[in-house]
Design a binder for these strands. Structure first.
Lengths: 112, 112
DNA sequence: GGCAGTTATGTTTAATGAGGTATAACGGTT
DNA sequence: AACCGTTATACCTCATTAAACATAACTGCC
């Protein structure tokens, strides 16, 4: 057969706003490991601006910020993921994982 | 709490091409009930061209067409969904339905 | 105080895509 | 043969989005 498969996208929304998706989770994780929005952006070959805008929207849409940042100082500045941010990363990744399983199941059902 | 919810999108792909999503299913259903691409497009306040392009891509990406059409003749022309098309509509709607359930479950889990 | 490296933001330019318009092709109906 | 409503397709314009460029603000360190 030709490769018929179910695929999809998952978002964690706050109201109607797509607050978190796979890309933003990756961004958050890279910020977490590098301590820098700029370095995270570079790793994902994304412009700093785009990365910052993503962070800004995430911070503004939740009650607590997911990323805290300071400018100036040692290294020029830094960014850090809050515990709330870490929680949301974990939550999203778990659900995303079982979402992928779901898609896989449904795809396998086709060729029965 | 604020309204934190999981949302997502589902696609039935052929290879890497998104062949069918919710919008196209609705389009196919309206073509089926009206017998006309134009009328279906009007109902969805979509341009005829956009509707036709959707149909064209679906037809070309599957081995068999999902929509057959004739031009001229009584009424100026007509369009019809093939049995293959009907099968795919059914398949997608079933999976989409359980996908929505999945999202609902995951959303409920948040507020535990 | 100047430097370094980053956060934060404004402005401008390029690219992508959506949408409108136009028109041909078609065949039953009159 | 002219008409009608639809399928089918080309083309051009405009708006929205994405990318690029530029610059300010900040603070530990030398």
């Amino acid at each position: 057969m030709d490769e018929l498969n179910f695929k999809g996208k998952l978002y964690l929304q706050v109201g109607d706003i797509r607050a978190i998706g796979p890309g933003r989770v990756e961004l958050l994780e890279r910020i977490n490991s590098t301590g820098s929005i700029r370095q995270a952006a570079l790793q994902m070959q994304m412009s700093y601006r785009q990365a910052w805008e993503n962070v800004d929207e995430m911070n503004s849409v939740f009650a607590e910020p997911l990323v805290t940042s300071v400018r100036g100082g040692k290294g020029g500045g830094k960014a850090e993921i809050t515990t709330k941010g870490l929680q949301l990363i974990k939550l999203f990744k778990e659900v995303h994982s079982s979402f992928q399983e779901f898609l896989q199941e449904q795809t396998l059902k086709i060729e029965c």
